[in-house]
Design a binder for these strands. Sequence first.
DNA 1: CAGCCCCGATAACGTTAGGGTATCGTGATG
DNA 2: CATCACGATACCCTAACGTTATCGGGGCTG
Lengths: 310, 310
Amino acid sequence: MLNTRHIRYFVAVAEELNFHRAAVRLHVSQPALWRQIRDLEAEIDVVLLNRDPRGISLTRAGAVFLDDCRDILERMTAAQLKARRVAQGEVGVLHIAFNEIAGRRREMPRFLQAFREAYPEISLQLHFLMSQAQIESLRAGTLDAGFLLRHRGEGHDFEALRVGQDNFVLAMPRDHPLTRKASLRLSDLADQPLIMPNPRNNGITHEKLVSALRKSGTAPRIAQFADNENAIVNLVMAGMGLAFLNSSCRSLDAQGIMLRSLEDLSLPVDLELVWPARNRNPALAHFTSLVKALSGDADQLEALMETGMG
Amino acid sequence: MLNTRHIRYFVAVAEELNFHRAAVRLHVSQPALWRQIRDLEAEIDVVLLNRDPRGISLTRAGAVFLDDCRDILERMTAAQLKARRVAQGEVGVLHIAFNEIAGRRREMPRFLQAFREAYPEISLQLHFLMSQAQIESLRAGTLDAGFLLRHRGEGHDFEALRVGQDNFVLAMPRDHPLTRKASLRLSDLADQPLIMPNPRNNGITHEKLVSALRKSGTAPRIAQFADNENAIVNLVMAGMGLAFLNSSCRSLDAQGIMLRSLEDLSLPVDLELVWPARNRNPALAHFTSLVKALSGDADQLEALMETGMG
DNA sequence: CAGCCCCGATAACGTTAGGGTATCGTGATG
DNA sequence: CATCACGATACCCTAACGTTATCGGGGCTG
């Protein structure tokens, strides 16, 4: 069976056109080299060298075989290096997801841009999935990591990196009567139609909101469930009711929605980058450590801005 | 050092994702296979397989390495087959030369076309060289074979295949007085200016013509030497004198030259395909045997046509 | 022409990479 | 709990590969 050794030896002989010199170059003895060439020729059943009394020369077949051999050797070392680089995560594909809130955060473009610059050979595949869908994809292995929101104390079995925090605030149309009140409390929402996150998609948020309302003695009047942030925004703008949104959505102000915090509602959530502990994509480590480095110093800044808002 | 065995074994394991099945497929024992894979990973310093308690799976690096390995294996067998085909002359390059007479012969297109059809992967490189230049190129090895003319009895050390015969005839302008004579002899050329082949290029022809003239008691009046057939034709047409051309040139009649045989001039030449006995281009054997096959039956036909002329 | 050198081809023998059998350890399974 | 499937080892053996020494022939030189 054709062997790498055959090829390497043949290339050396073909290049030196002299068994002795080729043997020196290969750090083997001349008879060993000679036998390998003989075996190679027997193996592929082709005379590769003309044996003339004064030395050797390549046959035509030997010349074209030499070309192919060089190519094969190059490809072997290239394959080796490539595998190593993939293993070290210097090249590869990384699937990253964002939920709707995370995708809107200021720091995200920074993360992505910095990563693309640092690891230009890692292809970033971005997905926009709700938190629950991210969890499923992470477990299924189709996703490497995801940016999502987690309620304080909500546990899961992923590795996580906190990159920011957020809070739930009230969203109402700009012309709603409540916008004129100086300060708002949960009890102000009594009898107001509410648009709530669908418990199917986001059970925890729904439950936390409802229990906060109950605790304040307010019976929520749920007008409609909405499947995602976009739906909530649209419904609020259409005047279907009020809703709770993350303060990160304040960029929506311009669109006719006003966000106001509630005195007695504190539902802190962390914006986290999460990934399965046993994800073996080496590129992931590069991504998480880069995000960590970039979000570490940005943290205090973040906190400042959060408190500055109201 | 990375080895073909490593690659073959890894491809099997990667495809089966099971050491035992892969070992069966490779006709080796499972431990032997296992060790090769372990060594391969150590060699390229990359983890190619995830060892889970329930079995193995490919790492990302393993997956891309698998692709490269398959490619390399394919290229190795391809290189082997290609070398063999080159050795058997099924693919390659063949340099064939024609002298001016040979290129004009009717059978040449037939040879070339038949060869191209029979061996489409052999690239035919055609060269138009005078006989002497062909000999030199054949010796230098830049030419595989050549069609040229040889005087009967003229020896050389090449292999040769006779593909036709020819004769020297007189060439004159159509309006020359001699065209009106019913039959011509060498003595008719006394006092006629003659255009002779340059002895430097074609000494034998020159010598044979001169000695034929001498033998007939005619003193040749050599007007000019010409380097090649084309030059002779042009000079005759220009009225510079008469010349001896091969009867194969009769297609020139239309150009204002008349060819007439001489009663007492017999300078038979053979049209031969010649090649060095130790030419190692395997494609050459295919060419010569094809030419032999095609010219064998055409030989009597050829002879008939030659005598039919005059 | 003898002697020498270069180079490919062999012979004889040691070393080791690679292969075989037997067996272990550990999750999965019924 | 017994069993199975599968990867990981231990241990031994063979054959492939390497080494040194030597041959034989062609070409060059004194």
